[in-house]
Design a protein around this nucleic acid. Sequence first.
DNA 1: CTAAGCTCTGACATCCATGTCAGAGTCAAA
DNA 2: TTTGACTCTGACATGGATGTCAGAGCTTAG
Lengths: 121, 121
Amino acid sequence: MRIGELSRRTGVHERLLRYYEQQGLLYPERAPSGYRSYQESDVETVRRIRRLLSAGLNTETIATVLPCVRVKAGNLVPVCPEVIDDLRAHRERLTQAIEELLASRDLLDAVLEAAPLELTR
Amino acid sequence: MRIGELSRRTGVHERLLRYYEQQGLLYPERAPSGYRSYQESDVETVRRIRRLLSAGLNTETIATVLPCVRVKAGNLVPVCPEVIDDLRAHRERLTQAIEELLASRDLLDAVLEAAPLELTR
DNA sequence: CTAAGCTCTGACATCCATGTCAGAGTCAAA
DNA sequence: TTTGACTCTGACATGGATGTCAGAGCTTAG
């Protein structure tokens, strides 16, 4: 498919699809005209990219990480240990943030529970 | 304490402490001289801010989320209906942030699971 | 009191992810 | 074949987090 359709199907600005390619996250084929030609699977890849970005990873890290995901797709891709370590570190940070927010929410719940009943609705 | 000490104790650039204040994440008192005067508790607050930032939250989101954390400080929360509503709204924001981070972590887990076994340690 | 070291504000700079636009070429339906 | 929609590249702009610097005003040890 061409870039317009991929953009429509993912909700991601064409400009960004080109940018992701430039950053090594996507590598569509090219028609003789020069038009980019994307695989069906790129739809899912783009969504993954977006999720990883919103998780706080940068494009460079994502570039090293996407091939791992592709392992699942059946291709063999060697991944160096330090990347794995990076990912684990990032996972750790996410976990900390999650726990922090969970604790905050529990506290909030306690306060809300302590609120006079007549205010609860 | 003044900004230099807070910076030293948290490892966060003074420039950023001023920026966080500007974004409504910190609001130190001011000495007559105009110098910022931070609470002891701000050390922990700054660390929290950094953790949340590295988890991919932006300062605006953090600003909506930090007040919940501040309940923890043991302050009495005046319980009028609008406060209750505020708290519920805060809880909602917390829940959203938590869910986003959980989704991010799940994705990361999927990537890590796909990593070659020999690299798992 | 003075010098050294802090702090203040405000401006400018940088990096990354995005947005937007212009000018030129391509595709496809009428 | 023409026209409108699509795509290409490249450049410039923006927004958020961060770094850096200048000039001026505090603070405090000596």
